[in-house]
Nucleic acid binder design. Sequence first.
DNA 1: TTCACTGCAAACGCTTTGCATATGG
DNA 2: CCATATGCAAAGCGTTTGCAGTGAA
Lengths: 162, 162
Amino acid sequence: MVLKNEKHQKIESFENIKQIFIEYLNKTNHRKTPERFTILKEIYDFQGHFDIEMLYNRMKINRYRVSRATLYNTMELFMESGLVIKHQFDKNCAQYEKNFCSKLHDHAICVKCRRVIEFHEPVINKVEESLKNSYGFNTLNHSLVFYGICEYCSINEKAIKK
Amino acid sequence: MVLKNEKHQKIESFENIKQIFIEYLNKTNHRKTPERFTILKEIYDFQGHFDIEMLYNRMKINRYRVSRATLYNTMELFMESGLVIKHQFDKNCAQYEKNFCSKLHDHAICVKCRRVIEFHEPVINKVEESLKNSYGFNTLNHSLVFYGICEYCSINEKAIKK
DNA sequence: TTCACTGCAAACGCTTTGCATATGG
DNA sequence: CCATATGCAAAGCGTTTGCAGTGAA
């Protein structure tokens, strides 16, 4: 298993990311509005997963007013251009994640504290191959989420029991 | 990879399932109401995944009136007793699945026709072990979903292209 | 100029909640 | 008898939609 370590990630510059988005907008005949680029910059600067409300509040704090509707619309564009991935970990808990580094990865979520561990597990590719061979199923993407108790919470549990 | 073939599944009798549920209700001091057993029977007889609305309608057709609230409450009990698993494939698309055969399994969903393939992939247990060893993460359960194009839809796609 | 985009608020749809009534233990 | 469970309807909440106004091309 490969730890997703920030130090080892290839960091793409904002200009590169912006260029990818511009190319997508051109190709699909969408307008290059200032809102779209401001939102892109905002999520570029933000670390980790986010949801719409979080993004809305951060932008308000930064004195940039966008409507929630625009945020939802823009996320759609980001997803279609491959810059953002959406996770529906639970109902009423849609999380977005920027996808600026190329490595796809999976998640382990602590059911107690909602902490998210990210990891990359190449063995999943073997499963993809099996699906192709056994069922003729062509995988586009996948979602692998483990639910359980993280290290910190299990230490706390033991402490409480004592 | 192991195909989840109905023919090879151990079919638990309703009485066995009911017994598991009764034991859970006893252990957790919940009442044995007629509604709970009627709902259990209904999902026992039903094949495949279901959502609350589907279950509500089926029961109405069968002349057994329960409120949606009771269905939601009862699903909670079924999940806690391990008889039902909840999948949040999308927002506004919570699917429940009975878990009467002991083998856990994963899903591949066709993004075109929404067909669901079920399979069992033991290699996931290795990933669980890695999570435990690398992060001290204790997995309770997991969700692995592949999104892609199924055999039938890719055959159709080729036919259309010709 | 024009039509896609934005902001706002209302609508939506699934789920949860509050409360009066019913009933298992 | 009374704490739990149920049914019903209202409320909640993230998301989508409709529409009037705005601005990119």
